[in-house]
Design a protein around this nucleic acid. Structure first.
Length: 762
DNA sequence: GAGCACTGC
């Protein structure tokens, strides 16, 4: 059976290369044939005095760590793994938390694959940057090499690898996807491992689709899909190659955690926040020592709950100081400044009196504590069963966040957080029946919940033109794909047959949404690429505005000083430019209520985008006449965001989005207070009410001039917006016919249309 | 006059 594997047809070639390496009998890898290495051989190399990759003596630390590695569940299954790796091209592996799969499996692969003998690499992807970096550090220590040499990591803004030396590379899934755009066969890798595949991030899902395709043309490429939960069968079936083939083989390793006892409520809870607070206080009064982790859905809910818990706990302590210890309540969410996030690692408070009842720490957190951050010492988990999840409505092209029930897999993950250091308890604030019957097995994959315009452009760039027939693990809604294709066609990134245009190809080179990359590329024609680069960078980071609850008025006053009347985009540019000129002043950001983290990130992105512009020969231009400059900037905004325009409706300050006909309000965070008739918006925000945010005033003539295809009035839905545009159209044409000055305008208009047409046919 | 779950290039 093994001999029928197409990979093995290539075997003799590798054998020859290994011989060529002329490994002498006393070296650790003597007699190793790539991909036919046994567990016994690998173990003998691990015990060898010499490091097979550096030819140096192993350090004392290496031996110490090796003893610890031997205790990991996955280590005892090395023989089994080596055998399954030898015989298969694609493997699905399941390893629960604590199995050691993320650190050990890539090393087993390296010992069998010996990628360094062929100038290849083993890649292992992670959904998060911190994970890629910290695991790479750990594995470099385990292999007794310097981080960034044989073992490295690669992610946006940080490449810790050495070309020609690095053969084991941890990287973010998004980074591998980016690489795949320029190298669709992923030729530099001999084995690719996708870790945490159960999280179903957009990048991992797309990579699974690509790898399934590449596997057929590259029989020498081995693929391992690693997952924590038992959705392995889905991956096994997906990766069965060819019609009617057997599912991909499964390699399974048990986890190693402490047992967690799970409790359910008898009746469904009406108010989960109130129930959660009650449960936390009950645990504090009645349960043994150990910290508590409570999952809630957002910043406001968390701050609110922290205040209430603190108040009630203080009451309890006052009433009964002999039996109730002090309680410390710490919030945790990603937009919290890093220094405050660190508080989750503080020790629980000491007893208030000698031999008094012990203190306790309560961490109230979003989903960030479910996967990204691990807090030791948690013994109790309170799980109300909700989280905020992104949903996408392709009909109105809006992404929004919705408080929704979590999945069973997510509930299990949350419960597991109680058993990291000792046996724990998990209190679920829903009934066991609801858990069994109401919750989905798995969290909906991201690919089904978001706007795909960026992804579609990337796929087309990689030569996948039939997006509907692409072999997805879970196929997105056809309407979502249609929406993406429609946007890309109007932006002239794709032609009418769905083929990529030269413009689209350049757009895909930028790590940006297509509207933004389009703006960057055409901005030199308007002599304002420097400014568009700044705006684009600022739109790529979270909001820079801080508004501490105890200093709202000062923060608003500081913001008003940056505000540019024509709109929020110019305000963002103003903030960015002032940030650059005041970089020497460490207090500047603080004094102006601006988020230093976000500004630094914007500057990083600006640098990366500038390099991409240089690569694509896009010059950085600007104008000295500010009035003209601001107008040109707003025109470029129209060239990217002409599908996000709203028209004023009546006198109440409402707006109506063009074509989608949604009634919206300007978001209160917007600095635009002149209520202009036509605005362009960066984002449709659906919270308690529909808002548009990131808003700039535009002139309707520009819509007809720079987006004549989209604003083709003959095909425009009837209504007040169309009538208003029609009046503008008539005025333009009338003027053009009447006077000599207007003839100039007409010429300009024709130029604009030609430009538009040119872009569409490029 | 109101909010940004979490990632990633």
């Amino acid at each position: 059976m093994a001999e029928s594997n197409p990979y093995l047809a290539n075997m003799p070639k590798y054998q020859k290369q290994a011989e060529k390496a002329a490994i002498s009998a006393n070296e650790p890898l003597y007699g190793f044939i790539p991909r036919r290495v046994t567990g016994a051989q690998a173990r003998s190399a691990l015990e060898h005095d010499l490091n097979p990759f550096t030819k140096q003596q192993h350090s004392a630390q290496y031996k110490r760590i090796l003893e610890a590695r031997k205790k990991l569940p996955v280590y005892s299954q090395m023989d089994e793994f080596m055998e399954i790796f030898k015989n298969n091209q694609i493997i699905v592996m399941v390893g629960e938390t604590g199995s050691g799969k993320t650190t050990q499996i890539p090393q087993f692969v390296a010992y069998s694959d010996l990628p360094h003998t062929r100038g290849k690499m083993v890649a292992c992807t992670q959904p998060r940057r911190v994970a890629a970096m910290s695991v790479a550090k750990r594995v470099a220590d385990e292999m007794d090499v310097q981080l960034g040499r044989q073992v490295g990591y690669s992610m946006r803004f940080e490449d810790m690898t050495e070309p020609g030396t690095t053969f084991l590379k941890y990287m973010t899934d998004g980074m591998l996807l980016r690489e795949a755009m320029n190298d669709p066969t992923m030729a530099r890798y001999s084995t690719i491992i996708l870790d945490e595949a159960h999280e179903r991030t957009l990048a991992t899902d797309i990579l699974m689709g690509l790898l399934k395709k590449v596997a057929k043309t590259r029989p020498d490429l081995k693929i391992i899909i690693m997952s924590a939960t038992l959705d392995a069968l889905k991956f096994q079936k997906y990766f069965s190659l060819g019609e009617g083939s057997a599912p991909a083989p499964l390699f399974k390793v048990p986890g190693r955690t402490h047992p967690v006892e799970v409790f359910y409520t008898q009746e469904p809870e009406g108010d989960y926040v109130e129930a959660a607070i009650r449960t936390v206080l009950m645990i504090h009064r009645a349960e043994g020592p150990g910290d508590i982790l409570l999952f809630l859905t957002g910043k406001e809910e968390i701050e609110d709950a922290c205040r209430k818990i603190k108040l009630e706990a203080d009451d309890l302590v006052n009433q009964d100081p002999d039996s109730v210890g002090p309680l410390m309540c710490v919030p945790l969410y990603s937009s919290l400044p890093p220094a405050q996030q660190q508080r989750i690692f503080d020790q629980a408070p000491k007893p208030t009196m000698p031999n008094g009842p012990p203190g306790r720490k309560v961490v109230v957190s979003t989903n960030i504590a479910e996967t990204s951050l691990t807090i030791d010492g948690i013994v109790y988990v309170v799980d109300p069963g909700f989280s905020k999840q992104k949903v996408y409505n392709p009909r109105i092209r809006v992404e929004s966040l919705l408080v929704s029930p979590i999945s069973k897999a997510s509930a299990q993950q949350r419960a597991g957080r109680a058993g990291r250091t000792q046996p724990g308890k998990c209190f679920r604030l829903y009934t066991e029946k609801d858990f069994m019957t109401q919750l989905e097995e798995q969290t909906y994959p991201e690919i089904l919940r978001c706007n795909l315009s960026n992804t579609v452009l990337e796929l087309v760039k990689m030569g996948i033109t039939d997006l509907v027939k692409f072999d997805y693990v879970d196929a997105p809604a056809p309407e979502t794909l249609m929406r993406a294709l429609e946007l890309l066609n109007y932006l002239a990134a794709l032609d009418d047959d769905g083929n990529i245009t030269p413009l689209g190809s350049r757009m895909a080179d930028f790590p940006l949404d297509p509207q933004l990359s389009k703006m960057l590329i055409i901005s030199p024609e308007f002599n304002c690429s420097t400014e568009i680069l700044a705006i684009t960078s600022m739109l790529s980071v979270p909001s820079v505005w801080l508004r501490p609850p105890n200093a709202r008025n000062q923060a608003d006053a500081a913001k008003a000083l940056f505000t540019v009347p024509e709109g929020d985009h110019l305000t963002l540019m103003n903030v960015f430019n002032q940030y650059l000129t005041n970089k020497g002043d460490k207090r500047w950001a603080y004094d102006n209520f601006l988020d230093m983290r976000a500004l630094t990130q914007a500057e990083n992105i600006q640098g990366q985008l500038e390099r991409t512009m240089q690569r694509n020969d896009i010059p950085l231009l600007s104008l000295t006449d500010e009035r003209k400059l601001f107008q040109n900037i707003r025109q470029v905004l129209v060239c990217g965001f002409f599908m996000q325009i709203a028209h004023k409706e009546g006198d109440k300050g409402s707006y109506m989005t063009v074509k989608d006909n949604q009634v919206v309000q300007l978001h209160p965070s917007s600095g635009l207070d002149s209520r202009p008739e036509w605005v362009l918006y960066n984002e449709f925000v659906l919270t308690n009410r529909p808002y548009i945010s990131g808003v700039t005033e535009i002139r309707p003539e520009w819509l007809l001039e720079f987006a004549s295809n989209y604003f083709d009035l003959k095909a425009f839905p009837d209504g007040e917006t169309k009538r208003a545009l029609q009046r503008v159209q008539n005025r333009r044409l009338g003027r053009a016919e009447d006077s000599g000055i207007s003839r100039k305008n007409k010429k300009k208009k024709d130029d604009g249309e030609r430009k538009q047409k040119k872009q569409r046919t490029e």
